[in-house]
Design a protein around this nucleic acid. Sequence first.
RNA 1: GGCCCCGUGGUGUAGCCUGGCCUAACACGCCACCCUGUCAAGGUGGAGAUCGUCGGUUCGAAUCCGAUCGGGGUCGCCA
Length: 592
Amino acid sequence: MSVTRTHCGAPRPADEGAHITVYGWVDRRRDQGGLIFLDLRDHTGILQVVLDAARAQEAHDAAHGVRLEYVLRVEGELRRRAAENVNPRLGTGEVELHATGCAVLSAARTPPFPVNEDTDVEEQLRLRHRYLDLRRERMQHNLRARARFSTELRRAMSEQGFVEIETPLMIRSTPEGSRDYLVPSRLFPGSFYALPQSPQLYKQLCMVAGFDRYFQLAHCMRDEDLRADRQPEFTQLDIEMAFVDEEDVFAALEHAIPSAWHACEFRGSPLRVPFPRIPWREAMARYGSDKPDTRFEMLLHDVTEVARSSGFRVFAEAVARGGVVKAICVKGGDDLTRSEIEGRLTDVVRAAKARGLAYLWRRADGWQSGIAKFFSDEELERISATVGADIGDCVLMVADTAEVATTALGALRNHLARARRLYDEARVDFVWVTEFPMFERSEETGAIQPAHHPFTMLHADDVELLESDPLAVRSRAYDIVVNGREVGSGSIRITDPAIQRRVLAALGIGDAEAREKFGFLLEAFEYGVPPHGGWAGGIDRMLMEGLGTENIRDVIAFPKNQQAQEPLTQAPAPVDTAQLRELGLSLLPPRQ
RNA sequence: GGCCCCGUGGUGUAGCCUGGCCUAACACGCCACCCUGUCAAGGUGGAGAUCGUCGGUUCGAAUCCGAUCGGGGUCGCCA
């Protein structure tokens, strides 16, 4: 546009008398007959335009037919408003544009939902007309915040000497991990590329290549079912560093993330730095989760010893079988009713595989509960002291295997915190969870599998356990957890071929299979590999926390719905048989 | 694949539990007219829903039952 453009949000009283041209969408119109007011909106704000039939007949007539969301060009003279007409809710509220010309650049159909206000609209409808949804103030704000966050992260990484390297999007499929999205090869019919679940192997190759410090805002694709915080396509801040240990990785991120966070003025600013570190064992013991929410207390306590000798058979028998009894103390839990506990709260622990939930109220006149009679006064006193129960509190307990009791109470802890609003909504807690177990047992197959990935270095003190007790081996893997949500994970990697061989052996992967699957990485390591480690974290999830939204779609421009469809363009869609033939593909009949 | 919630004019909701006063209500939006200081403009008038779909129960269904479709959440899954 050759005419100089003034943005709608820009004019101020100092600009009085200026002849300007503005472009934008009609946010509201107030037609009083001879006098029409239009609120013209662009991404910078809203400017009131005045169209006076007596002064500019032609412009006024044009404005008469204008409707919401029409795209206009308006020129005129900027004037200061009379004192009684000032609108303090607008940045431009002290001025207004007296139009001499008004051109409709584009008419608009009546929008399927309000663009000019922040009403809840059915998700599917928002996605089908995403261009209108994105035009709304909230999404404009979110996506502009996202752009700023990415820019600031890039700046913070670059200033620390990290080199941004783009890794390929069409790569070899590797068997581990989540389900791959596949891309058929035309030149090699029957062969496929995979879209990366992460650039893991490439960034390690960058270390071998001598890049020392790599980063990327990497697109990752995983073909798994969706959640409120999970999209099939997402973006990670991906980093890798050579000649480092955990502290160097932590320091790099404790600089980059907070500086970007603060530049965006995100929720919870300023962040507490350094991020507290919680060993995995402690996270499980105290919070009942490897994703501890540290915004509130109500920690788990172990009352196994009291339970062991008690007359309460449910507890004593669980302990005799090698189980444990864990407890949390609900401060002011006096108001929890029996039906609440036996209903909703018991459902929560049952969902985590616990058999039931025991409860005790500590009241001024003593302990109250169906099970209090099974405990001596001294035992009740010990429980009370262990969990820190005062009069007016409620103690909730689960007896089961250590894993079930812990995770069930952890789930209950989170449930109660949300239901009882035990934390400050404005607070954002970043924490490191360290020393994750090296391996875990697959519930499906019973086989040992990597908890992180098979190139994760193990804790120096636990090397001897690798063959004798692999499940007890701690790794040098670490997560960043924000308000109980995992946003990223990383590790120091194995670069010693002997250790790598032993780890793969523990996973039941022999030399031949290792060559077949990761041969290129192991071969690369034979040419001089620096010790290295890294981390990758979800930008989308960090934005959710920073912007305070519960849904990942609110921080992505064109997300998929829960069926992984994109309702605007209708992806995925069938393709022409000619395309299939070219790729050497034919379709099986649909599965029943 | 399991479980939970939702589906009523263009949008957001009420009505549903306890069937008939529903010829389906309210707000916003939409259309027409009036209006020269409005800014969530106002006034007058108007259009617009066979209550997701199919079947059942009943004299009678938005309302009860079953199935099904669509959306959201969650468990499984996400090395």
